[in-house]
């Protein structure tokens, strides 16, 4: 009996000792890596934000604030019984405080294989700059094509009189988005969620811009987001909540930059297809 207790005690104490040592080692590693991990995740978020918002000639983002530090989340009302989805706004401000636009994070719950995480870059009037797929579980080679040419269709679109942010097959008159052959559900999921997000923005624009003004003095700049001029000042030009001039100016400036980007993009596309044709010729020549 005594021998049994002795062995049980030994077993338990050795196991406990090992666990304690392991716990210490892990706590140490955790502390060493904690900041690096937070930074890596922040960079990932910033990468998507930078991608969807306009850039200047050198490819640097026009905005100079830290959008992720000014972010705020709102709930989108859903019909009864459905879950209220969340939408997160990352405001982007230029050097002089003008509102360049927003990076909008929305999650599509109607994807084929699961949720689709979307980042949509919009100007203050709700016109789309670019989109970025944060995460998706769609069928590789089919649904995953939304991350290729499909999402380019959204560039420059907005919801206005046209309201053309619908799949062509869902609305033959107004729809302007071509679905991917064989991946209708994935295409529809992205299209409808983008439309939902922009609708939400336009319906609640005043409230959203108010929130940006609120966060004004809490904003700061981090060195990885600003460009060479090292600008650090950061105030929204006008505290008047309904100052449409500031917004219009920002829109014009941003639109100009965005138009330039579009022409650059089509120029690049032309170059690329010329290049491809050349390579094809070379290869067939062999």
């Amino acid at each position: 009996m005594k021998k049994q207790t002795k062995s049980i005690v030994r077993n338990v104490s050795v196991l406990t000792l090992i666990t304690i040592v392991a716990g210490f080692a892990l706590a140490l590693t955790f502390n060493l890596t904690r900041d690096k991990i937070a930074e890596a995740e922040r960079q990932e978020m910033l990468k998507s934000i930078r991608f969807v918002l306009p850039k200047d000639d050198q490819g640097n983002p026009i905005f100079t604030n830290a959008p992720d530090r000014m972010k705020f989340t709102m709930k989108m009302e859903a019909p009864e019984g459905e879950v209220h989805e969340e939408i997160t706004f990352f405001p982007a401000l230029a050097e002089d405080g003008r509102l360049v636009g927003f990076a909008v994070k929305a999650i599509s719950k109607i994807g084929y294989g699961g949720d689709i995480g979307l980042m949509i870059g919009i100007d203050p009037n709700g016109k789309i700059y670019e989109t970025y797929i944060l995460s998706m579980l769609e069928t590789p080679g089919l649904g995953t094509k939304i991350n290729e040419d499909f999402k380019d269709q959204f560039i420059g679109k907005s919801i206005g009189a046209d309201d053309n942010l619908i799949l062509k097959k869902d609305d033959r008159k107004k729809g302007d988005i071509d679905a991917i052959t064989g991946a209708t559900i994935s295409s529809r999921a992205m299209t409808n969620t983008v439309r939902k997000a922009i609708n939400f923005y336009l319906e609640n624009k005043t409230e959203i811009i108010e929130k940006v003004v609120e966060k004004d003095d809490k904003a700061n700049v981090s060195s990885d987001v600003i460009d060479d001029t090292g600008n650090k000042s950061l105030h929204i030009e006008s505290k008047d909540k309904t100052d449409t001039d500031a917004i219009t100016d920002a829109t014009t400036e941003a639109t100009r930059a965005y138009e330039k980007k579009k022409s650059d993009k089509s120029r690049n596309k032309k170059n690329r297809s010329q290049h491809l044709r050349k390579r094809k010729k070379e290869r067939s020549g062999k």
Binding site: N11, V12, V14, L15, I18, T19, A22, A25, L26, T29, F30, T33, K36, I37, E39, A40, E41, Q43, E44
Partner: peptide, 26 residues
Amino acid sequence: VRIPAFIVVIASFVTIVDLFLNGYMY
């Protein structure tokens, strides 16, 4: 108690690799 002991050792190293990759090879 050797199996649980081995598991604790292995799990610790796995967690270390997990944290390391999370921070340095996102």
